[in-house]
Computed example of a mutant assay.
Amino acid sequence: MLPRERREILLGCNLLSQCCNSYEYCVSCCVNPARTLKEQVLNVKIAKPTTAGTYGSVFDFCAGRCRHNSESVVHENAYLSDFHHCFSMPSNASGAGVTQLEGRLSGISVIIGRQGESCDSVCKSSGQSCVLNKLILLNQCEIIQKYMSCKRGCLASMGADQPAEVADDAPSNLNPTACLYTRIQSMLSCDGSHRHTRRLCPCA
């Protein structure tokens, strides 16, 4: 069996971040049925406007998605890393607009926590409780960027402390001032925390 780091980075692609260092490798990894589900991508809009069409095939999705997109750049003129051809589902894949998402947050106090603080603690400080099933609504770049500065963009990550923003004094390898969302919804947690991030919390 390959060592873990070799399994995660295969053929120029980081399988955890779903990003590759070349367009060709990206498309090749993306069309693998084990990594991209046909029934999911055929519902993804090609562009953000509500009038935009959807992809006709997995290959079309991969060919389009692997091109550079706003989630792979920082300051609009530099790549976040050499692995900037990404085939992950777009963070707004649900197609729901910000206004629609905010409507579903009616009655929820969205509070930014202190560095290293869990949402359970954040909400308790204001006499409220964390509403776990609302974290999925906050776990989207468009929403995170309404509440946090996200100076280094909005990045997909893996952690129970997300959605969150990395503190500006965090080690450089943790992408200071970047906002983070998780692609793995089962990881969303009210009690998760990280000493280098500030969480975005739904309280009620």
Results as ranks from 00 to 15, higher is better:
Ala47Gln: 14
Ala47Val: 12
Lys48Glu: 09
Lys48Cys: 05
Pro49Trp: 01
Pro49Met: 13
Thr50Leu: 12
Thr51Gln: 11
Ala52Phe: 03
Gly53Asn: 00
Gly53Val: 12
Gly53Cys: 02
Gly53Ile: 14
Tyr55Thr: 09
Gly56Glu: 14
Gly56Val: 05
Ser57Glu: 09
Val58Asp: 13
Phe59Tyr: 06
Phe59Ser: 04
Phe59Asp: 06
Asp60Leu: 03
Asp60Thr: 06
Asp60Cys: 03
Phe61Ile: 08
Phe61Gln: 04
Cys62Glu: 05
Ala63Arg: 02
Ala63Thr: 04
Gly64Pro: 07
Arg65Asp: 01
Arg65Gln: 05
Arg67Cys: 00
Arg67Ile: 00
His68Thr: 00
His68Ile: 11
His68Leu: 05
Ser70Phe: 01
Ser70His: 07
Glu71Asp: 03
Ser72Thr: 14
Ser72His: 00
Val73Cys: 08
Val73Ala: 07
Val73Asp: 11
Val73Pro: 08
Val74Cys: 01
Val74Ile: 15
Asn77Cys: 13
Asn77Ala: 13
Tyr79Trp: 14
Tyr79Met: 14
Tyr79Asn: 15
Tyr79Gly: 13
Leu80Cys: 08
Ser81Thr: 10
Ser81Glu: 01
Ser81His: 07
Asp82Tyr: 13
Asp82Lys: 08
Phe83Gln: 04
His84Lys: 00
His84Thr: 06
Cys86Leu: 07
Cys86Val: 01
Ser88Lys: 00
Ser88Thr: 02
Pro90Ser: 02
Pro90Thr: 08
Ser91Leu: 06
Ser91Phe: 04
Ser91Thr: 08
Asn92Cys: 13
Asn92Thr: 14
Ala93Glu: 05
Ser94Ala: 10
Ser94His: 00
Ser94Trp: 03
Ser94Leu: 02
Gly95Ser: 11
Gly95Ile: 00
Gly95Trp: 03
Gly95His: 09
Ala96Ser: 13
Ala96Gly: 05
Ala96Ile: 08
Gly97Val: 01
Gly97Asn: 11
Gly97Tyr: 03
Val98Asn: 03
Thr99Arg: 08
Thr99Asp: 12
Thr99Met: 00
Gln100Asp: 13
Leu101Trp: 10
Glu102Gln: 07
Glu102Asn: 02
Gly103Pro: 07
Arg104Phe: 06
Leu105Asp: 09
Leu105His: 08
Ser106Phe: 06
Ser106Val: 13
Ser106Gln: 10
Ser106Glu: 08
Gly107Asp: 08
Gly107Leu: 00
Gly107Met: 12
Ile108Asp: 11
Ile108His: 12
Ser109Glu: 03
Ser109Asn: 13
Ser109His: 07
Ser109Ile: 02
Ser109Pro: 02
Ile111Gln: 01
Ile112Leu: 03
Gly113Asp: 03
Gly113Asn: 03
Arg114Met: 09
Arg114Ile: 05
Gly116Val: 08
Gly116Arg: 02
Gly116Leu: 04
Glu117Tyr: 00
Cys119Trp: 11
Cys119Pro: 04
Cys119Ser: 01
Asp120Gln: 11
Asp120Tyr: 07
Ser121Cys: 07
Val122Cys: 03
Val122Pro: 07
Val122Ile: 15
Cys123Ala: 14
Cys123Asn: 13
Cys123Val: 14
Lys124Leu: 15
Lys124Phe: 14
Lys124Ser: 15
Lys124Asp: 15
Ser125Phe: 04
Gly127Lys: 01
Gln128Leu: 15
Cys130Lys: 10
Cys130Tyr: 04
Val131Gly: 02
Val131Glu: 08
Leu132Glu: 15
Asn133Ser: 15
Asn133Trp: 10
Asn133Tyr: 14
Lys134Glu: 11
Leu135Trp: 11
